[in-house]
């Protein structure tokens, strides 16, 4: 061991404390009763400790969700921080669960905890992963659907980070529209 240097290094703090939530669909319970807070973290090291401790997205049972939200914001439309907001929605084809889902979800998490959206980071509320038999979905939630500059900046950065080509578009939907209409009829407020 001669010559080995042991460094005492402090953990790297994140700008925000984040909460990871898990939803498991049990039809005998209410939606809220199926939603569980897993844990909160606020350092890079603790993020990886958690990430490696839980199931990867592609291994979740259909009907389950992961949500990562800033501490103090609950992963539901009704939360005061979400109710005027909306989401950038990435819809995956069935076969993409095995090719893209884990990569897209990790990239989404890194965008959030690393504060990739620069001056519009304050608009970010969280992100939601839905694992579904008919096709998985990932969405980045922001707090104010009418904040065009913030929403479009976040959408452009997010699309680039996912490595989506110009041929692919992703849409932003206000939660008020999603809540009042059947999902496939929800109109996109913005598209990138």
């Amino acid at each position: 061991a001669k010559g080995l240097v042991f460094e005492m290094v402090e953990k790297h703090p994140l700008q925000n404390r984040w909460a990871l939530w898990f939803f498991k669909n049990d039809k005998s319970k209410t939606w809220q009763a199926n939603l569980h807070l897993i844990t909160k973290f606020d350092t890079v090291e603790d993020f990886w400790g958690l990430y490696h401790h839980i199931q990867p997205a592609s291994k979740l049972t259909p009907g389950c969700d992961y949500s990562l939200f800033k501490d103090g914001i609950e992963p539901m439309w009704e939360d005061d921080q979400n109710k005027r907001g909306g989401r950038w929605l990435v819809t995956l084809a069935k076969q993409q669960r095995h090719t893209d889902l884990d990569h897209f979800w990790l990239e989404t998490l890194l965008c959030l905890i690393g504060e990739s959206f620069e001056r519009f980071g304050g608009d970010i509320c969280g992100a939601v992963l839905n694992v579904r038999a008919k096709g998985d979905k990932i969405a980045v939630w922001t707090c104010e659907a009418d904040n065009r500059d913030g929403v479009t900046h976040i959408g452009r950065v997010y699309k680039e980070r996912l490595g989506l080509t110009q041929k692919v578009t992703i849409g932003y939907q206000a939660h008020t529209d999603t809540a009042s209409k059947s999902h496939n009829l929800t109109k996109n407020k913005f598209v990138v």
Partner: peptide, 20 residues
């Protein structure tokens, strides 16, 4: 200042052992 970390920086810590 604001704590921004790019993806490469974050990924560097992926397999780093850490005391918890």
């Amino acid at each position: 200042g604001k704590k921004q970390y790019d993806r490469e920086f974050l990924l560097d810590f992926q397999f780093m052992p850490v005391c918890i």
